[in-house]
Amino acid sequence: MPANIWRRMPSFYSLAGSECMKCSSLYFPASKVCKKCGSQEISERVFEGAGEVVTYTVVRQGFNDDSENEKLVCNSPYIISIVKLMEGPMVTAQMADCEPEEMKIGARVKAVFRKISEEGEEGLIRYGYKFVLA
């Protein structure tokens, strides 16, 4: 898990994706090759975190409670959204501080920094983005 967390820090911590220097296509997560024009001239692009809910689902299934494994840090049920960022790319993410009845398609949201998962009481904590209603 340490290497996995460490490699993904830029995208998980600060919504860092990529931008094609030739055709300006934007990607999240980052892509090393532009899927539109094939260019490998890519630079990092950090997204603001503001967006709109395209769709969402409410997950009511309980999650693994085995403390040896990585466990999500959230209440149950929890909400997974597909968010269209204002810059264009779409992100799949968990909602925070939000009940299912408050959700609606088209709702404006913003990214926040939260705990995503942890390996029990002794292991590492994975931090990253979730979204809250704006």
């Binding site: 840090v73 209440n75 925070a96 501080d97 920094f113 705990k115 995503i116 904590i125 931090y127």
Partner: peptide, 13 residues
Amino acid sequence: PGIDEDSATMAVE
């Protein structure tokens, strides 16, 4: 705090 909030997450915000 929310279940997924701690001293680090609040400091970032």
